[in-house]
Design a binder for these strands. Structure first.
Lengths: 364, 364
DNA sequence: ATTAATTGGTTAAACGATTAAGCAAATAGT
DNA sequence: ACTATTTGCTTAATCGTTTAACCAATTAAT
């Protein structure tokens, strides 16, 4: 009986010792404190350059920290300080040049201020987006910068972020109803700019392969399209206004659909470069002369627009500026003690980049 | 005097109270414990489905947790458990389809197991890569999955990861000298496959716009190129073998350089699709018939290879499989108590995707 | 009936940093 | 010469969760 207990005790001691031996404990401020025979508080303050610590001690601490190869435990300080220095980013996908360069810029700006980003993608699915939000909240991010999935209509999950007092900044695809900050371009104006450009090129029947109206930016592009037609006394033909998800495949399908009309359009303006690319593929396959028989304009200025033949006219959304502004907006909130968000739009001017697919004057 | 002290005390009390009022404390397991009049330990165990807690209590805990809108504090549990459930990913850039889809897959696999990823990009800079590593270590990631920057020769920083006992998994661009896991394709074989394909198309003078030899994959592609030439009794002409950073711009420059040779090549094999694209632009600009006068092959199977005219023959690296294997490899380590890494290569078979830029038989 | 094992918890100590509060010694102010 | 302030620390609590160790009550085994 007693022997058993002793045996058990010895076993436990032993396994503990083994554990200690095996696991190379990372150095902590406690180790530094022990070496210098000062308190952990002093070490912590020294490392954070507190004014109440003498320069001599600071130097010593820094030296020992270096010698022991000390790496601060971010989790501990984050827990204590109540902030993780992590910012969540949600985008529909990263393998689009627009989103990836927005992220790149956000990362660049935030890294400088000691923040890291956790990137997640919704793959245009509302369900994945909700999961992403949960994951980010769970990871205790200090803020979220997001561009919504096409599918997203219900904003309950985004309200969840707001209700937790975590700053939320939307860009590109954002619903203003959430009353948070938004950074984007003037889609309505840009859309008008495109139509006007096509009109100038002599186009009379301009089709629009648009996104779904429930997404504000696509709705704005549609409104811009309609109003620009009105302005130039061109009739609005409902056959020429199509909504879709704007993938390459959608572009192919909708272009085919447009070509099957009794009276075909003489120009197609797609609300995304991907849809424009699909349209271009169909036009090329059917040997339709671009831009002479059909002018084509995309949206987003993805790099491939200048790679394909003919190159596609598109709209430059200044992705880097969007990323920068979003990051700066977040940083503003980090300076405020209590987060109180309100609708705050930063609208950048987009720029039309005319290429071969709509440059009739030049080509002829 | 005494009055002053009292005033100071009252002021401090007041400001503390104000703080308490202002900051909406998030619910913790303590709150749940209080409601149910049990210990926080019981709550923690209930939430983690510990067998020593009755089903009744578990149900109650879950219910209260839901009612109070409880969100576990990841930082606290990470600190206590000594793991962050965060995995760092380092890539040269995210706006390449290859890397972005590798990341996508890693994310997918790891999310299922409760891990999140922190994505960083080196932008092909060694300095940024070192920063990224520091950042990731600082963030206490449980592992790092990386593809090295072109510039990276010194491996000291990567040794740092290893020395901390954090699993490191390399993919695509990896130095085997580090003695860690590596997932990639067989570059040597793929390179031979490309040359053989070109030989079959009747090409006799095949140029190679390669990457720098110090990067193993590019060295392997160069070796494959050389050996395949030998195998088919084609002379190796040093003018036709060029090293570069493989950007679009490099492709343009090196193609121009090749066109200025006394005896031009009749085929160009670029070790990246981006370089191939640059080459294609020059060829198109100079109205050189592809593939008739000059066959062209890229590497990586980036989406744009099928978008441009003519479409570019390339090698599919099975990015998703690479991502999957990398993630699985990491997960293996999470099951082991002590990380002991060794060189462990997973080599996937790449696939040649023949397109118009090299399909002479079909075009003629 | 007695001992042993199981059930369902509790207590308290971690994890590693930060920070409010306190305090002795040195310095400054009058 | 005495008080006030500043300097340079220390002590101890805290962030929210997990977990080793313990314990009382119940059930099972002999």
């Amino acid at each position: 009986m007693i022997i058993k207990f002793i045996a058990l005790y010895l076993f436990k001691r032993l396994s503990k010792d083994i554990k200690k031996l095996n696991i190379k404990r990372k150095t902590t401020i406690k180790d530094i404190a022990n070496v210098l025979n000062i308190s952990t508080a002093a070490v912590s303050k020294a490392l954070n350059d507190d004014s109440r610590i003498s320069e001599k001690t600071k130097q010593a601490v820094r030296q020992v920290a270096k010698n022991l190869n000390y790496q601060p435990n971010h989790l501990a300080s984050a827990l204590r300080k109540g902030k993780s220095n992590l910012v969540g980013v949600i985008v529909p996908r990263t393998n689009s040049h627009f989103f990836s360069s927005v992220i790149q810029k956000i990362e660049e700006v935030l890294n400088k201020e000691g923040y890291n980003i956790i990137m997640t993608q919704s793959s245009e699915s509302y369900k994945k987006e909700c999961n992403n939000i949960d994951t980010l909240l769970f990871t205790q991010v200090d803020g979220i910068i997001a561009s919504m999935a096409n599918e997203t209509i219900d904003l309950a999950y985004y309200e969840k972020i707001k209700s937790k007092g975590i700053p939320l900044i939307l860009f590109d695809r954002g619903e203003n109803d959430l009353n948070v900050d938004y950074i984007g371009i003037n889609d309505y104006d840009s859309s008008q700019m495109i139509v006007e450009h096509l009109v100038k090129q002599g186009c009379k029947r301009i089709a629009h392969i648009g996104g779904y109206r429930h997404t504000r930016i696509f709705n704005n592009r549609i409104r811009g399209y309609i109003d620009a037609l009105k302005k130039h006394n061109l009739p609005l033909d409902n056959e020429l206004l199509i909504e879709s998800s704007l993938t390459i495949e959608d572009g192919r399908k909708k272009m085919t659909q447009l070509l099957n009309l009794k009276t075909k359009p003489d120009a197609v303006y797609a609300a995304s470069d991907y849809a424009a690319l699909g349209a271009l593929q169909i036009l090329n396959e059917q040997n339709i002369n671009i831009p002479h028989d059909m002018a084509l304009v995309g949206f987003g200025n993805e790099p491939f627009t200048s790679m394909v033949t003919p190159s596609i006219t598109s709209v430059n959304q200044h992705s880097e500026e969007i990323g920068k502004q979003a990051a700066l907006k977040f940083l503003e909130y980090t300076k405020e003690p209590v987060i109180k968000q309100s609708l705050n739009k930063i609208i950048l001017n987009a720029e039309l980049v005319v290429r071969d697919s709509s440059n009739i004057a030049k080509v002829e």
